[in-house]
Every structure is written in structure tokens, then in C-alpha cells.
Amino acid sequence: MAEGVKPRVKAPSKAAAGEAVVLKTLISHQMESGQRKNADGTPIPRSIINRFTCEFNGTSVIDIQMEPAISTNPYFEFEAVIPEAGDLKFTWYDDDGSVYEDTKSVAIG
């Protein structure tokens, strides 16, 4: 696992049934593009988060395929429909095989 990787998620704790809510996510990650060279001219190998997914109670909200052109500390903002109480699950997939997860519960009210 890459060092200092920490996810942040902003989701409402409550929503009206059927409401579309705005979700924001950010994860600290270098997103090494593979285009850079170090001081002695050796290329620095690519090491990025290549996929991000969000699910609500197991059903897909969004699935994002990520390329090296996504900035360091990847940020996403998108919407989910909340038909019932349940859990939003956020998952980031690293090139090195690591998987980072976060979950937010949403109540109806």
C-alpha cells in the first residue's frame, strides 16, 4: 500500500426517499503518471489509482476508469439516488493492488 493514502468522503447522513444527493470524494495519492524522470534521468514508474467505484446497497452509482491525467489527490463529485436507508460504499483501486474503502450510512428522513 502506498504511504499516506487517506480517503475523505462527503455524503449527507439523511435524505428524502428517492432524493438525488451530491457526493464528493477525495483521496490523498501521488498519482505518479509514468511520464516523469528522477534526478538521474531514470523514468519513475507509473503508480496511480486506476479505478473508483461507488455503490448504494450493492447497486452501482458510478464506476470510473482513471488514467494518469487525473490530478494528484483525486477528487470526484457526482450524484446518487437514495431510494431507501442504506450504505454508500466507496472503493479506490491502486495499481499496486491495494484497495481503499470507505462507507457512509444514509438514513431516510
Binding site: 438525488a20 444527493v21 451530491v22 503518471s33 455503490e55 448504494f56 447497486t59 452501482s60 452509482v61 458510478i62 464506476d63 470510473i64 476508469q65 482513471m66 488514467e67 494518469p68 491525467a69 487525473i70 490530478s71 483525486p74 477528487y75 470526484f76 463529485e77 457526482f78 450524484e79 446518487a80 439516488v81 431510494p83
Partner: peptide, 22 residues
């Protein structure tokens, strides 16, 4: 040239997304 591909699922609200790119 690749940046990202957003695939919207069944529980997606507006089919929109924001991010920050290089």
C-alpha cells in the same frame, strides 16, 4: 490522451461528474 471514463449505474442521480485533471 486518456483522462477518465465515467460509467453511470442504476443508482446514479444526474448523469454528471466533476474531477480535476492534468
Amino acid at each position: 490522451p486518456g483522462v477518465a471514463t465515467f460509467t453511470f449505474g442504476e443508482m446514479s442521480g444526474a448523469h454528471s461528474a466533476s474531477t480535476r485533471i492534468r
